[in-house]
């Protein structure tokens, strides 16, 4: 059941990312809703939930991206898993923790993308960090923190134990 829910979520998030989200970009950079969703579910639902949703989202995103077919699967799945691991070791997840965690995971995910682009030198790496990595991390953190605040009352700060439910 939860798998179907995640499938449905992925089928909503990825088209939203590719069609309407360019209206909400900053300096031409859009928040990565797939990463935010995988991390939120990972933080709150556990590493397995984050991993499964991340893999689904990554698979769909790879189909609609010009990049290699593995890169979104790996980064989104890894991000969800990492968020789940981080969430498991925290007693209370606050909006500040969520925002900082999302920013860090977004930076790590972007680093994989940057590495896959084979930058010619340090100048290009720095340009990528400055123009894309940091802006996207800020946007991801802001969107994730906002969504967490919105849904915090519903989830009441307790981690959902879902591994068995899957």
């Amino acid at each position: 059941m939860k798998f179907l829910l995640y499938l449905l979520l992925a089928l909503v998030v990825v088209p939203l990312q590719t069609t309407l989200l360019h209206y909400g970009g900053l300096f031409g950079i859009r928040p990565d809703l797939g990463l935010v969703a995988a991390c939120l579910v990972g933080f709150l639902g556990g590493e397995l939930d984050g991993l499964i949703l991340g893999l689904l989202l990554g698979c769909f995103q790879d189909m609609l991206s010009a990049g290699d077919l593995w890169i979104n699967v790996v980064t989104k799945g890894g991000s969800g898993f990492l968020a789940g691991l981080a969430g498991r070791h925290m007693a209370h997840i606050t909006p500040a923790v969520m925002t900082a965690g999302l920013a860090i995971i977004s930076c790590l995910s972007s680093a994989v993308f940057l590495y896959s682009m084979n930058p010619a030198g340090l100048d290009e790496v720095w340009l990528g960090v400055r123009s894309t990595v940091l802006v996207q991390a800020g946007l991801d953190a802001a969107v994730g923190g906002g969504l967490f605040l919105l849904f915090r009352q519903r989830w009441s700060g307790d981690r959902m134990v879902t591994e068995g439910a899957l």
């Binding site: 990825v14 088209p15 990312q17 590719t18 069609t19 360019h22 031409g28 950079i29 859009r30 990565d32 797939g34 769909f60 995103q61 790879d62 609609l64 991206s65 010009a66 990049g67 979104n72 972007s110 993308f113 940057l114 682009m117 894309t132 996207q136």
Partner: peptide, 14 residues
């Protein structure tokens, strides 16, 4: 054209 690339790392369109 029905969409843009799903990531910020490629300049693509769907």
């Amino acid at each position: 054209v029905i969409g843009r690339d799903a990531t910020n790392w490629y300049r693509g369109m769907i």
